[in-house]
């Protein structure tokens, strides 16, 4: 199946909202830098600079025992260097009013803190207030990207499995049956079943053309069940590797003149139904145009069965 540009923009749109979702789902410990190197407040700025250079740090928590008492960043070191005070202890240049985040908080808490403050990094504390990591905006971007990648791979896997359903299962005749109960007069949900059927077919690897033809046929049939039946009816879709069979059936009232019902523009729909945009008298005509084979069997007072078939060529199967 070739992806049209619109599908790509769908995915882009999805990934935007998904990353926002992920900011709530992901916990800080999943994205933070662990094994954080804590500094003693009494070491000199000179030795902190050496550690930063060696370890490529841009900032580190300052602790006494297990307790966080400050944070020192590369900016603090630059300030000390400019003032010629590299021999001072780091406690004289560190930021003392440290804003920290909790290890099991959602990532969005860190994002909010970054937006509120001007800090580039935040120490992460566990439930005993012990520093266990450090988080930067870069860590969050990386974490989100990794999570999106994981999502994407899972989605690919599901898609792959669905489209190979018929190859993976061996039998003399494999088919997948979808059933939908359609309630009379349910205009609010009208079209939901058809929408789901179209999506399912695309998932199973049908071409956009086939999915569209099935979608239109089954949508017209669904609206007919909603508009014209006594008690609603059922949509039954059977998917096989070589064909898709769609059936709409109900138990009344039946069609008085099937030939007339097939005439373009003929409709028995009420004005009320027409105001909702239906009853153009094109439903059955549209169905016939979309499917390869259509049979309409109706008995007055007993009900109607509409059979629709689309044959899939070898290209579709592969």
């Amino acid at each position: 199946m070739t992806a049209d540009p619109r599908q790509i923009s769908d995915q882009v749109a999805e990934s935007i909202t998904r990353s926002e979702e992920l900011a709530y789902e992901l916990r800080i410990h999943e994205v933070m830098t662990k094994n954080v190197h804590c500094l003693s407040p009494d070491i000199t700025l000179e030795s902190a600079l050496e550690i930063f250079q060696r370890e490529r740090f841009s900032g580190a928590p300052v602790t006494r025992g297990d307790k966080l008492i400050g944070i020192v960043s590369i900016e603090d070191l630059i300030r000390a260097l400019r003032e010629g005070n590299l021999d001072d202890p780091i406690k004289s240049y560190m930021t003392k009013d440290v804003i920290s985040v909790r290890v099991y908080d959602p990532v969005v808490e860190a994002l909010k803190t970054f937006a509120r403050t001007n800090f580039g990094r935040l120490p992460v504390l566990d439930e005993n207030d012990k520093p266990v990591g450090i988080i930067t905006k870069g860590d969050i971007s990386n974490g989100l990207l990794k999570a999106l990648q994981r999502d994407y791979q899972n989605e690919e896997l599901i898609r792959y499995r669905a489209s190979h359903l018929f190859e993976d299962i061996e039998s003399h005749r494999t088919s997948l049956i979808l059933r939908y109960d359609i309630r009379k007069g349910d205009f609010i949900r009208g079209g939901n079943a058809s929408s789901n059927i179209k999506r399912a077919l695309l998932r199973l690897g049908a071409s956009p053309q086939v999915a569209r033809r099935c979608g239109i046929a089954v949508y017209e049939a669904e609206m007919n069940l909603i508009i014209h039946t006594d008690r609603g009816g059922t949509l039954r879709i059977e998917v096989e590797p070589h064909k898709i069979t769609m059936e709409a059936y109900d138990d009344g009232p039946g069609i008085e003149d099937v030939k007339l019902a097939m005439k373009p523009g003929y409709s028995t729909a009420t004005n009320e139904v027409r105001e909702m945009g239906f009853g153009a008298g094109m439903g059955l005509v549209n169905i016939k145009r979309c499917v390869d084979d259509m049979r309409l069997i109706s008995t007055l007072d007993r009900g109607t069965n509409l059979y629709m078939t689309i044959y899939l060529n070898d290209l579709e199967n592969s």
Partner: peptide
């Protein structure tokens, strides 16, 4: 109404 969007999607 919502049917317009359903129709569009189909």
């Amino acid at each position: 109404n919502p049917q317009v969007v359903r129709t569009a999607q189909i």
